[in-house]
């Protein structure tokens, strides 16, 4: 069952990751820095960007995309 963007944002980071794992689809990934992996997911009809700290094996944020320009940052 789909959640809205607002409902998704009600959850904490750990739960957002669980939701991504359950219902999300990984679209693309990019490496903006040496220790940073940014992934783009599609879930419930909107997009989510996760930022992963490769050095510390830790997800730093899981947020819906507000600015559509961000898509251009991903390699085709």
């Amino acid at each position: 069952m789909n959640l809205t963007k607002e409902e998704f944002s009600l959850f904490n980071l750990k739960s957002r990751l669980k939701l991504l794992k359950k219902d999300g689809k990984l679209l693309r990934q990019r490496y903006p820095g040496e220790y940073m992996l940014v992934s783009l997911y599609s879930i419930y009809g909107f997009h989510i960007e996760t930022i992963y700290d490769v050095d510390n094996f830790k997800t730093l944020s899981v947020n819906s995309i507000l600015n559509p320009d961000v898509y251009q940052l991903y390699p085709p």
């Binding site: 069952m1 959640l3 739960s15």
Partner: peptide, 18 residues
Amino acid sequence: QEELQENIKYTHLMLSKY
């Protein structure tokens, strides 16, 4: 406690959506 609350929140959302 936080994990439990997240599950509670999710259950309410599901019951409401269904």
